[in-house]
Design a binder for these strands. Structure first.
Length: 535
RNA sequence: GCCCCUGUAGCUCAGUCGGAUAGAGCGACCGCCUCCUAAGCGGUAGGCCGCAGGUUCGAUUCCUGCCGGGGGCGCCA
């Protein structure tokens, strides 16, 4: 890696110059402006003070040393600004990047084993089985699934899980609402009033148990809708199953044994304040029923028992108030709080017809995810969800995504892939002879459009690491959009199959196209989007 | 009252471990199809990075306070 080579060269130079103390790490970054070189380091700025030197002077000495013995691929080293050391590289280093991409391919490029097989469970969506998933769930779905793909690519052993809250008051209310509609009457005041209840009630056989049938109906609906968006789960975990198996009782007994539980006011409490929570929490109510918290604890206890090293829960913003108690619960179970990560996705404000649409299931005033998929298509919906950080609220304007496709980046990105496939298709149709990879001469690649693609490809491995460690799939979105932009610009300015193009340039460009295809494909895969052959 | 997220171009948003003259798309305006897909490409205009302090060689980035927006603080789930 060029980066390591440059860092090493800088370190050796500092030693040679007798800089003391040496910095713990040497920063190397890609400057924002091209005239600042391909790589830049601020070592001189960072170390000058402690070493009792002037930054600009020190930088000058570093550059002089390096210019005397240039590292591989380095054309020259310059000093700029307050004391930056800038490296200008030969295009040959980017030709090396093309080689990495082509040789490693879609499967291997930017894949790593840094995760060391760490077992990670990502739990997301986990909508109540009392209705369809709505547009707000779509964000968590796209996020959780893409995060899982990203973590897998850096070598984690990832499982995706959906937790089914299939017992308790919500389910009872849901069943009662179905029954009411079945008999042609309105559901209870606090029941479910969506149109789908009426539709489902009509489908429900007379002898069906509304609880069991309703849950199945809701789950199959949810499963199908999520699958359309290319989101699938390895496991659907039932809350009721823990009641049946006695896991909830076992968990309570376990907590008692650990001495983190006490009785008070006729209820059973978790001493969560001992683990950083604001107040202690009730586990079993006065009426003998468990609160939602106890099954949740049992569920997480089960996750750990299954051998996962890290649990990532993706929750909506309306659940953020439970973060502290869940973290406390994990510690109460004897685990390190860092073994559970909670990602809170901020709200999605759906806009339709210029009006905000509320997402409350009970009022029936919702937009179902399937409606969104019907209107804008699964890929545009999914990319829209992945466009920005989940830390920010999102405005999802359906009209914009539907009517003005120019505003929809998914076409831009997928079109780049389709264009590349088109080049390859036409090349095949015209029976253009291809020089095998081992024999191709990449030196004709020197156009800024060509190099731009390679620079973007070069950045993927580290972009992937950042996206993974920050749990930020939207960084992959940004990366893919930039690569797509580079591809469009290249496509526009750099003809390949035209008769006036020199043969060696054509051959080199065809391999560049292959590298771009690989990069786009990897990016689209990480986002869970299709890579169309044509559009 | 307390906790979490957030405030960057007209709009929607990026901005890496703190770096140099803050970016993209859309919208606006002006150009480009004899061509491998014009769902594209090029250009112009557009900024008190919410405000005020602090930390330091350097702050959109880190810290504190204030202001605005959103969400949450149950023996509801």
């Amino acid at each position: 890696m060029i980066r390591d080579a440059l860092t090493q060269a800088l370190r050796e130079t500092l030693v040679t110059l007798g800089v003391d103390p040496l910095p713990e790490s040497i920063a190397l970054e890609r400057p924002a402006r091209r005239e600042h070189g391909d790589w830049s380091s601020n070592v001189a700025l960072a170390t000058a003070k402690a070493a009792g030197r002037k930054p600009r002077e020190l930088a000058g000495e570093i550059a002089e040393q390096l210019n005397d013995r240039l590292p591989l691929h380095v054309q020259r080293v310059e000093v700029a600004g307050p004391g930056f050391v800038n490296f200008l590289l030969d295009d040959t280093w980017l030709h090396g990047v093309l080689g990495d991409v082509v040789e490693q391919g879609v499967e291997a490029y930017a894949r790593s084993e840094l995760g060391a097989g760490r077992r990670v469970l990502v739990e997301f969506v986990s909508a109540n089985p009392t209705g369809p998933v709505h547009a707000g769930h779509g964000r968590g779905a796209a996020y959780g699934d893409s995060l899982a793909r990203i973590l897998e690519r850096i070598g984690h052993d990832v499982r995706r899980e959906f937790y089914i809250n299939d017992r308790g008051v919500q389910m009872a209310s849901f069943a009662a609402s179905l029954t009411a509609r079945k008999h042609g009457v309105s559901p209870p005041e606090d029941g479910y009033h969506g149109d789908y209840i009426t539709e489902w009630a009509a489908e429900m056989p007379d002898d069906a148990d509304p609880h069991i049938w309703g849950e199945e109906r809701a789950l199959s609906e949810q499963r199908e809708t999520l699958a359309r968006m290319n989101v699938r789960f390895d496991n659907w975990f039932s809350e009721q199953s823990m009641v049946d198996s006695g896991a909830i009782d076992t968990t309570l007994a376990d907590l008692r044994e650990r001495g983190v539980v006490y009785e008070g006011n006729g209820a059973v409490w978790l001493r969560s304040t001992a683990f950083g929570d604001d107040k202690d929490r009730v586990l079993v109510k006065t009426n003998g029923e468990p609160t939602y918290l106890l099954p949740d604890i049992a569920y997480h206890r089960d996750k750990f028992a299954r051998g996962f090293d890290l649990l990532i829960d993706v929750w909506g913003a309306d659940h953020h108030g439970y973060v502290a108690r869940m973290k406390a619960a994990v510690q109460a179970l004897g685990h390190d709080p860092d073994e559970l990560e909670l990602v809170i996705t901020q709200l999605v404000n759906l806009v339709k017809g210029g009006e905000p649409v509320r997402l409350s299931k009970r009022t029936g005033d919702i937009i179902e995810l399937r409606e969104v998929l019907d209107e804008v298509g699964p890929d545009p919906a999914r990319l829209t969800y992945l466009l920005q950080s989940v830390d920010s609220q999102q405005t999802f304007d359906m009209d914009v995504v539907v009517s003005e496709s120019m505003e929809n980046p998914v076409y831009y990105v997928q079109m780049a892939h389709a264009r590349i496939r088109s080049i390859e298709r036409v090349a095949a149709e015209r029976e253009v002879e291809r020089v095998p990879w081992g024999d191709v001469d990449l030196s004709p690649l020197s156009d800024e459009r060509e190099l731009e693609i390679l620079r973007q490809l070069e950045v993927l491995p580290e972009t992937l690491l950042v996206a993974a460690s920050e749990r930020a799939p939207h960084k992959i979105t940004s990366w893919v959009r930039e690569l797509a932009g580079a591809v469009h610009r290249f496509y526009h300015d750099c003809p390949i199959l035209r008769s006036d193009i020199a043969e060696d340039l054509r051959q080199a460009r065809l391999w560049l196209v292959e590298a771009a295809r690989i990069g786009l494909r990897i990016g689209l895969d990480l986002l869970g989007l299709h890579a169309p052959e044509s559009m």
